Simulated assay, not measured.
Amino acid sequence: MKRKTIIVLAMVLITVLVASIVYDFTFNSKHRDIANEKAAVMLSAQELYINFKKNEATATAKFLDQVVALRGEITAVENNGIILNNQIQIHFDTEILPTVVKGTSIRVKGRCVGYDDLLEMVKIDQATLIHN
């Protein structure tokens, strides 16, 4: 009887230990810092868009979840983002509206999250401005 109790307590203790390790790894792991990562590729907004229009599957494999640096003209300013060349929708983590003006050229860096078939736009998030 005493041996069964020790085995059950040991199993409970091991289960709690494993659960706490999994919890710690899942919720306290270091997050990706896109702003400080080096861009995997640097190209124009037009070039990125053409890659997705030509072959979405190939472009997705090449650019998805990659940090890309883009240059292009601001064609629209949204709540917390901009649209480059009417083709690339860029979302910033911080407020940038006072520093961007429609019609100006800009360079940005962010994570490519893919192509939106409905809007026919490439989406970039966690973007930051690249200052010359």
Score class of each variant (00 low, 15 high):
25 F>I: 05
21 I>D: 10
112 C>R: 05
17 L>M: 09
81 G>P: 06
8 V>L: 15
25 F>S: 08
39 A>C: 02
65 D>I: 03
26 T>E: 06
128 T>C: 01
2 K>W: 10
90 I>S: 14
79 N>P: 00
41 V>T: 15
51 N>R: 15
24 D>N: 15
8 V>D: 09
103 G>N: 01
25 F>H: 10
119 L>K: 08
110 G>P: 13
10 A>C: 12
82 I>M: 10
19 A>M: 07
110 G>T: 11
17 L>F: 13
57 A>T: 09
88 I>G: 06
32 R>T: 05
34 I>Q: 01
43 L>K: 03
24 D>L: 09
116 D>W: 00
118 L>T: 11
76 A>H: 06
27 F>R: 10
55 N>W: 02
37 E>T: 03
120 E>P: 06
130 I>H: 09
8 V>Q: 14
125 D>L: 07
104 T>K: 15
130 I>E: 07
69 A>P: 00
112 C>D: 07
102 K>T: 10
60 T>C: 06
62 K>I: 07
24 D>A: 14
112 C>L: 06
121 M>D: 02
53 K>H: 03
131 H>R: 10
104 T>S: 15
47 E>W: 01
98 P>F: 12
1 M>D: 04
99 T>V: 10
22 V>A: 15
78 E>I: 15
7 I>G: 08
115 Y>F: 14
74 I>R: 06
51 N>A: 14
14 I>E: 04
67 V>E: 04
40 A>L: 01
52 F>Q: 03
118 L>A: 15
104 T>E: 11
113 V>Y: 01
112 C>V: 13
89 Q>D: 09
16 V>I: 14
127 A>D: 00
4 K>Y: 12
22 V>N: 14
130 I>F: 12
42 M>Y: 08
15 T>M: 11
13 L>W: 01
120 E>R: 15
41 V>K: 12
31 H>T: 10
29 S>V: 04
92 F>A: 05
75 T>H: 03
83 I>F: 07
42 M>T: 09
56 E>D: 03
12 V>L: 13
131 H>G: 05
81 G>S: 09
48 L>N: 01
77 V>F: 00
33 D>F: 07
64 L>W: 08
48 L>W: 02
129 L>M: 02
41 V>I: 15
3 R>L: 05
122 V>A: 14
65 D>M: 13
27 F>D: 07
70 L>A: 00
34 I>R: 02
10 A>Y: 00
46 Q>V: 13
110 G>E: 03
50 I>H: 12
129 L>S: 01
104 T>Y: 09
89 Q>C: 10
108 V>W: 03
8 V>P: 13
118 L>K: 15
126 Q>P: 01
117 D>G: 06
31 H>I: 12
113 V>P: 04
44 S>A: 04
16 V>D: 00
128 T>V: 05
124 I>G: 04
115 Y>W: 03
121 M>S: 08
56 E>Q: 10
76 A>T: 13
14 I>Y: 11
108 V>P: 02
46 Q>C: 11
72 G>N: 01
4 K>I: 12
91 H>Q: 15
94 T>R: 11
80 N>F: 08
7 I>Y: 04
97 L>N: 09
50 I>L: 11
60 T>D: 07
32 R>H: 03
72 G>R: 04
101 V>D: 07
